[in-house]
Amino acid sequence: MFSFLDMINHYLGYVNLNVKLKNRIYTILGVLGVIYLLYVSVRWIKNGFGLRGSLILLVAIILAYFSVMNVFYYFTKKKAPLDISPKIEKVLGKTLGGNVEEAEETKQSGRERRGNDLLNGANIPANGYFDSKKILPGKVAVNSEQSANISQLANQLQQMNLMTPNYGGLGSRELAQQITQNKKPVYAIGLGVNIPYFELQQDGQQMIVYAGMNQAQKQPMGKITTVGLQPIADVYDKVKLYLANVILVGGPYMVMGRNEPIEKQAPYTIRVQLAYEREARAHAEQPGERTAAQPSTARPTLTTREPASRMKRYH
Rank of each mutant, 00 (worst) to 15 (best):
F72S: 11
K78D: 04
K79V: 12
Y36L: 08
K79G: 15
P81N: 04
K46F: 00
S67D: 10
S67Y: 08
L55E: 07
I84H: 08
P81H: 01
V71F: 08
I35N: 10
N47T: 11
I45E: 10
I84V: 15
G30R: 08
A80S: 00
L82N: 14
I62S: 07
I61M: 12
L38D: 01
L29I: 05
S67A: 15
A64Y: 01
T76R: 15
I84E: 13
K46T: 01
R43T: 09
G30C: 09
L29G: 08
W44N: 12
F49S: 12
G50T: 09
A80F: 00
V68E: 10
L57F: 08
L37N: 04
R52N: 11
L92V: 05
G50N: 14
V59T: 03
K78R: 13
S41K: 10
K87M: 12
L29Q: 08
S41D: 08
I88F: 09
L82A: 15
V40E: 15
G53Q: 02
N70C: 07
P81Q: 03
K90L: 00
V91T: 06
E89Y: 10
I88Q: 09
D83W: 01
W44C: 09
V40T: 04
S67R: 13
S41T: 08
P81R: 10
V31F: 13
Y74H: 00
I62F: 14
A60G: 06
S85T: 08
Y73H: 13
N70P: 05
Y36D: 04
V91C: 01
N70D: 02
I61P: 07
F75I: 01
G50P: 11
V59H: 07
K78E: 03
L92Q: 03
I45G: 06
P86H: 10
K46L: 00
F66A: 03
I62V: 14
L92N: 02
L38K: 12
M69A: 07
S67V: 10
G30T: 02
F49M: 11
I35T: 15
L63A: 03
V42K: 15
N47P: 08
Y65N: 11
P86C: 09
I62E: 03
I62L: 11
G93K: 09
L57P: 00
Y36K: 14
G53R: 11
T76G: 11
F72Q: 10
A64W: 03
L37H: 06
Y36V: 12
S85G: 04
L51S: 15
L57Q: 00
E89Q: 13
A80V: 00
Y39F: 08
K87D: 07
A64I: 02
P81F: 01
F49K: 12
S67T: 10
V71A: 04
L58K: 04
F66K: 08
G93Q: 14
L57G: 02
I45N: 11
V59A: 10
L63W: 02
I56W: 09
V59M: 01
N47W: 14
L82K: 12
L63K: 00
V59N: 03
T76M: 14
G48K: 06
K90F: 00
W44M: 09
I45M: 13
L32S: 07
G33I: 00
F72C: 12
L55K: 06
K90E: 01
V34S: 04
Y39E: 06
Y74Q: 02
K90S: 04
R43H: 12
D83C: 05
M69Y: 00
Y39V: 01
A60C: 06
S41A: 15
R43C: 09
K79M: 13
A60N: 09
